[in-house]
Nucleic acid binder design. Structure first.
Lengths: 348, 348
DNA sequence: CAACAGAATGTAAGCGCTTACATTCGGTTT
DNA sequence: AAACCGAATGTAAGCGCTTACATTCTGTTG
């Protein structure tokens, strides 16, 4: 069963095998491998040699069970198909990987029920920490998080609106800023295509921001000029069609994100409405798409990658030190591009 | 320390606590919870009640250690920022989630070294299965996979080129088809912007496909008309600039993916070269971007989501039954859109 | 009604690792 | 040379779960 080195063939070597081959105890092997506790350099090398010879890798279950840590953090996002989340997740993963922590990913499709289910699943997987999107979720979900005492951060929302550790920006202010600029460009007939607000604080805040800015200028956002749709190109195109084929027609459409705005551009193109001379369009997010379409979109730059990497850093910090970190608010920036133009036509 | 129900306060309840409260043994609790072995309905309910009352969730480490399964599968992709991988990953995750399996995600940035590092990390995390992109990786990586006996599937490559279980399509044939169509449209001066071929069999195959089709028609792909760049919009734009600002100028540019093609469109726009009347452009992948840009891109439709969901299904099958499944080859389809146009100018 | 079979449950031995505590080792100090 | 001390290492007790095997029920059969 055992060869001359003490290798049990067939099964994977365990720490005991390494210990035997290196001529030390399992405790020393563990200490040498995890750099916890002092080990003479010479011993460390012997252990390393044994590990290499046997091709040993620690068993995850054993390690997790004994140490009560999985070196795994989980993220639940609406969908990876939205570039903003993909970017943040990418940065999150890269940063975690520097600490030798792996990332469990789950998606909710913007559904609180699915998020809760995924949350249970990740908690059962023993994640050491969690990254979640937005502040809206069921009491149950928050309670789950609370009783498990798992460090978690909330991304994308405005820290000012949240009692938890959150890494995001002021969606409402950013949206207000967009509207202000559209208004400053002379537009008065302004429509908005929003994401689904139900259960989505960011979508809600963006509409609120636009509405507030308009109101401040004595303008109103009529009901039929505020359309709520899923964040897809096709939905954006369709919504734009609905707005643009009726009279009167807005001179500008403010969109809740770049994908929707790209859909609006496509609708305009097909309806032979020139952007920006006949219609101004703004997006939100500043993803690659914003500069790929023609004309390039005026939009709000959001530091997606920094949100992700900051999340990783705060979480690791929290997990290691045990101290809850402070929230982080990022600034956003309006990116003026061709899709928004000063209104030339005199409107009485 | 224990309250009247036997709840030890502070710490999380364990299976023993549930057993005590339900008045059964830990074995029965385990059987009831995992639906393994027969348990009287009445007993099952008692266990469920105890679980609910205590808010019990199984400890992951203990479970993994005892059962030798983690219900976790890993995926290593180049980057989530490329929509094709994000889409496949999304589908993979969704499908896995139906089997109550969670997904560990790691990224390699197209670097074999990083892939190997991530592979080690995921193997150490005890994944039950793995999804990898492409067939090129170090001997060491393959050996690692082999000695661990972890089921793994390869995505995106051509199953015909691989000895492992792979889920993909014939990249070379698809690329040849594109070139054929460009040639059939009358183009003779054709340039190609490729992805980095080193370590990437798909990029390699696509160039080979285009070159083969051209050769079959007595055409050559001159060195200065074949540019290799990373898959980004900016790189695509820059490469296109390089090609388009010299004389002679190609009448068509075949791109290795849609993102690069979008970059070419942007370069053309800035150089005042009309697409498609003065320049035809083709992409590859058929991501949303292809229909967002103007003119919409002629491209190759690849069933990204199906690749992902199929990967999940095959992996689960393999893990559960222990039988290695067969590879799957998907068909691709050329999507004729405006960016490719018949060459009108008579070229002698 | 005894004998028996299958269903339901219990007992207890690990799974492979970490870590508190105990022990040994090799100088230093007195 | 005895006493002492910190560094290095060893011992062994869990961590919480699954599961092979043993035992106890329960209903059926001859």
């Amino acid at each position: 069963m055992n060869d001359r080195n003490g290798n049990r063939n067939g099964t994977h070597p365990k720490i005991e095998d390494v210990a035997r081959l290196a001529g030390v105890s399992t405790a020393t092997v563990s200490r040498a491998l995890n750099a916890t506790g002092r080990v003479r350099e010479e011993t460390r090398l012997a252990v390393e040699r044994a590990v290499a010879e046997l091709g040993y890798t620690p068993n995850f279950g054993g390690q997790a069970l004994a140490s009560k840590r999985t070196n795994t953090i989980g993220a639940i996002i609406p969908t990876m198909e939205n570039a903003i989340f993909a970017r943040a997740l990418q940065a999150l993963q890269e940063t975690l990987s520097e600490s030798n922590v792996t990332l469990l990913v789950a998606t909710s499709h913007y559904s609180p029920q699915r998020e809760e289910a995924q949350l249970r699943s990740l908690l059962a997987r023993g994640v050491d920490g969690l990254a979640l999107i937005g502040i809206y979720r069921s009491e149950i979900a928050y309670r789950l998080l609370d009783t498990r005492r798992v460090p978690f951060v909330i991304l994308w929302s405005d820290p000012a609106q949240s009692t938890h550790v959150t890494i995001g920006f002021d969606n409402q202010a950013a949206a207000s800023d967009v509207a202000e600029r559209v208004i400053a460009a002379g537009h008065r007939q302004i429509a908005m295509i929003s994401g689904i607000r139900d259960g989505n604080d960011r979508a809600e805040a963006r509409v609120a921001g636009v509405a507030a800015a308009m109101q401040a200028h004595g303008l109103v956002l009529p009901n039929n000029w505020l359309i709520e749709i899923p964040y897809t190109l096709d939905d954006g195109e369709q919504a734009a069609r609905q707005i643009l084929t009726k009279t009167p027609r807005p001179t500008a459409i403010v969109c809740a994100n770049d994908v929707i705005a790209a859909g609006v551009l496509r609708a305009a193109r097909e309806l032979d409405i020139d952007v920006p001379s006949q219609l101004s369009v703004t997006g939100f997010d500043d993803i690659e798409l914003a500069r790929a379409v023609s004309p390039p979109l005026s939009t709000v730059h959001v530091p997606h990658r920094r949100i992700g990497s900051t999340a990783a850093r705060l979480l690791m910090d929290w997990i290691i030190t045990g101290n809850r970190p402070n929230s982080v608010t990022f600034p956003t920036a309006f990116m003026a591009r061709e899709s928004l133009q000063r209104l030339e036509v005199a409107v009485t």
